[in-house]
Simulated assay, not measured.
Amino acid sequence: MTTEHAEDPRTPAAAPRADGTAHDLRGGARMVAVIVTYNRERLVAECLDALAAQTRRPDAVIVIDNASTDGSGRVADEHPVGADVVHLHRNVGGAGGFCAGIARAVESHGADWVWVMDDDTIPAPTALAELEAAIGASPVRLSVLSSRAVWTDGRDHPMNRPRTRLGASAQELADAAATSPGARPIRTASYVSALLSGSDVRRLGLPRADYFIWSDDFEHTARLLREGRGIHVPASVVEHRTAAFGDAQASPGARFYYDVRNRIWALTRTRSFTLLERALYGGRTVVAWIRLLARTRDGDLVRSGAAGLRDALLRGPRPSPAVLAADPEAAGAVRALERRTGR
């Protein structure tokens, strides 16, 4: 076990906060929600309505307005949930927004747990309560919990299925089952309703802002779960109101660039995955890319993928504070946290 993950998952831990105080991670902890929005004023209003209707309301709500050009920021400012709204001056994508939002949650709001979601995520009234109940019921210390994401017709959304931990032991399976009906151990999770341990974020760092979109959650939750424990909690349900039902590769268009570049970054330029996982996830990804290109026969898609491959091989992600340089306060919070984690 590496030194950065040296905590025994069977030992409940206290989460250090910026002021030096600590909170028990098992229950009664400070839950802070983080939403990233860009030009979706109707959806962000519905997301905030859903947060206000939680049976266990978040202790604070942060909205990162990613330089929206519509009324998304104003809607968030005026919503009665009383969110802490950060208006960025430049659109840094979901990855940059979550990097800034998670940093603000742990640095400014003393979060013990950070509940992350997109602006098109609509949590059911008991979504957070079920996640908190699973923490309290778990016989082991948890690092990440994920909700069940469904589409508007109630089907499980293929974009947000967490990866089950490969080779989970009988004890790990039993530990997960003890937390909530149908719960299972996971290796990665989507940011469409994931609950992240603030303690682990403080030790292991933030998502990388330079990913812009896609695979930031894949890499970050894998980092938290390299040695930590995570569970999928089907009793915690959110609706992911995407325009269509399908996974990220259903119709990626020019965004295929980020799919290729970021997945290569995640699997080759980080320590978030074991060698076996790199081979397995990398192999599956390449097969999916080949099938996509064979199905679409789209020259623009080929060019986007080739550009992503080129840039992934030429350089790694820029430092997150540099990506957020247009917003010195956000960049400063990220820099302060990364200074302590050494990342």
Rank of each mutant, 00 (worst) to 15 (best):
D112H: 00
S138Q: 08
V86A: 14
P162Y: 04
G299W: 14
S72L: 01
V34I: 07
V192N: 12
G299E: 14
P16Q: 07
D49T: 03
T55Q: 14
H240S: 11
I213W: 15
R271Y: 10
G73Y: 10
A103Y: 13
R184L: 09
G299T: 15
A149Y: 03
G182M: 12
F218E: 06
A235W: 05
L51S: 05
R271V: 01
A103W: 11
S143Y: 04
R318V: 07
D65I: 04
E7I: 10
V44R: 00
A22H: 15
P234A: 05
G82L: 03
L309F: 12
A76H: 02
V287I: 13
S199A: 15
V61M: 01
V36M: 03
T179S: 01
P139F: 07
H79Q: 08
S236V: 07
S146C: 09
P252T: 03
T55R: 13
L195H: 06
V106T: 13
R297E: 04
V323F: 10
A52T: 00
R56G: 05
N160R: 11
N66S: 12
L267P: 02
L267N: 06
R261K: 14
S143A: 11
D70K: 05
L204I: 06
A127R: 02
V116D: 02
V116G: 07
P321W: 03
G230A: 02
A333G: 01
V32D: 03
L313G: 10
G136T: 09
A127E: 00
A170W: 10
G101M: 04
R104Q: 09
S72R: 07
L224E: 04
R90I: 10
H109D: 03
